[in-house]
């Protein structure tokens, strides 16, 4: 466990986090490894964790009935994966699958949720780091929605 601390402390997401909070986070973290093709989570399952991708590539997919799965976004080294653990009813909205061998750090969302409730300063600290990441993801999703590379249709 101790070996994870410098790794987490150096990650931009946790940078300059108060020492006691960092210890708390490290206490909730563990290493995970996914083989290529392995699902990390599936739509509808309980969402009780989030991930920092250390090395590899993860794809978020949706599989509409009667169609092939659609890739929505990929996550690679250093990126934060998952936020459904923070929003009731804590269920994943999409599938996440390792495209290649992927090593990641997983964080116990249930534990962190409870800590946030107990200690609002900690909760604020964590959320103020997560919200920008969500914002970026939302912007990116909107951009994709624009289909900027497509041939415009007459307005």
């Amino acid at each position: 466990m101790k070996t994870l601390e410098p790794l987490i402390a150096e990650h931009p997401f946790f940078k300059n986090l108060e020492k006691s909070y960092l210890e708390l986070i490290v206490g909730c973290a563990s290493n995970v490894r996914f083989d290529a093709g392995q699902f990390i989570f599936r739509e509808g399952e309980e969402a009780n964790q989030f991930y920092i991708v250390r090395q590899g590539k993860v794809v978020i997919e949706s599989c509409p009935p009667g169609r092939k799965p659609i890739s929505l976004q990929t996550f690679s080294d250093g990126e934060i994966l998952g936020w459904s653990w923070l929003v009731p009813p804590y269920h994943w909205q999409f599938d996440a699958k390792a495209v290649e061998l992927t090593r990641a750090i997983t964080f116990d969302g249930k534990c962190l949720r409870n800590k946030c409730l107990e200690d609002h300063s900690f909760g604020y600290e964590l959320l103020s780091r997560l919200v920008p990441a969500l914002g970026t993801a939302l912007e990116a999703a909107r951009m994709q929605l624009l289909d900027v590379y497509g041939v415009q249709q007459q307005q």
């Binding site: 590539k57 799965p69 890739s71 976004q73 990929t74 250093g78 951009m143 994709q144």
Partner: peptide
């Protein structure tokens, strides 16, 4: 390289071009 919309045979990045900056 990244693309906006991908099928399962695509092993590369999916997402807008600005998401390629990290790393």
């Amino acid at each position: 390289v990244t693309i906006d919309s991908a099928g399962r045979d695509w092993k590369g990045n999916v997402g807008v071009v600005t998401t390629l900056f990290p790393g």
